[in-house]
Computed example of a mutant assay.
Amino acid sequence: MKIRKLAVALLLAVAAAGCDNPFDNDQFQREELARARALWAREGGPSYTFTVELQCYCAAGTSLAPVLVTVKNGQPVSRIYEKANAADPSVAASAEVFGPYDTVDELFEVIEDAIDRDANVLQVGYDDAKGFPEIINVAVKGGASNDQRIVFISDFALTPAS
């Protein structure tokens, strides 16, 4: 009886080796990314605003307060802290810190890079209507133990191109 169970288990393992792995996270992430990019191509636009919030240990001495990003014709034109002080209501956020997250295409690139690098952690949530990423949680392999980044996108709005 034990030998038969072992033989069946071995046959199932051999048969499964020839099939696609249903738990292949990289393949799943690539398919989701392709689906989201296609939806963005149909439903998105070249000009928009959104708020980006970054949680990480990546910006010592730099504020990680939420930043309002304005994109016109596919190019970021401003990154302003949402809660700037009354004396200066338009404090620009660091391009070095927030630059990789200031267009939808760049957000897609962050995700693709994480897949290509076989990230230890990659969790992405996409907007159902437009396809842009709403949350990205990533920690790359070989990175420092505090190299995890979480990116939140909110208050997204398409704007007329000018």
Rank of each mutant, 00 (worst) to 15 (best):
M1A: 08
M1G: 11
K2P: 14
K2L: 10
K5Y: 11
V8W: 06
L11W: 12
L11H: 06
L11E: 14
L12W: 14
L12D: 14
A13T: 13
A16H: 07
A17R: 06
G18E: 05
C19H: 09
F23K: 09
D24W: 05
D24C: 05
N25P: 06
D26A: 04
F28T: 13
Q29T: 02
E31C: 06
L33P: 03
A34I: 04
A36Q: 04
A38Q: 14
L39Y: 04
W40F: 10
A41S: 13
A41L: 08
A41P: 10
R42C: 07
E43M: 07
G45E: 09
G45Q: 04
S47C: 03
Y48R: 03
F50W: 05
L54P: 04
Q55G: 11
Y57M: 09
A59L: 02
A59H: 08
A60G: 15
G61P: 12
G61L: 02
T62Y: 06
L64P: 07
A65N: 07
A65Y: 05
A65S: 12
P66Q: 01
P66K: 01
V67S: 07
L68V: 08
V69D: 06
T70C: 03
V71G: 07
V71L: 01
K72L: 12
P76A: 01
P76Y: 01
P76T: 10
V77L: 00
Y81A: 02
Y81C: 05
E82F: 00
K83H: 13
A84Y: 11
A86P: 15
P89W: 04
V91T: 14
A92L: 06
A93Q: 06
A93E: 08
S94A: 09
S94H: 07
S94F: 03
A95S: 13
A95Q: 13
F98K: 02
G99R: 00
D102L: 03
D102F: 02
D102S: 08
T103A: 02
T103K: 04
T103E: 04
D105G: 07
D105P: 09
E106L: 06
L107F: 03
F108Q: 01
E109I: 06
V110H: 02
V110C: 12
V110T: 11
V110M: 04
I111L: 00
I111M: 00
E112P: 10
D113V: 09
I115S: 01
N120W: 04
Q123G: 09
Q123V: 09
G125S: 07
G125Q: 08
Y126C: 00
D127T: 06
A129Y: 10
A129G: 08
K130E: 13
G131K: 01
G131W: 01
I135E: 15
I136E: 00
I136T: 01
A139P: 05
A139E: 13
A139C: 09
V140R: 15
V140C: 09
K141Q: 12
G143K: 03
G143R: 04
G143Q: 05
N146I: 05
N146F: 08
Q148T: 08
Q148E: 15
R149D: 00
V151Q: 02
V151H: 02
F152H: 13
F152R: 13
A157K: 15
A157Y: 05
T159S: 07
A161V: 15
A161D: 11
S162G: 14
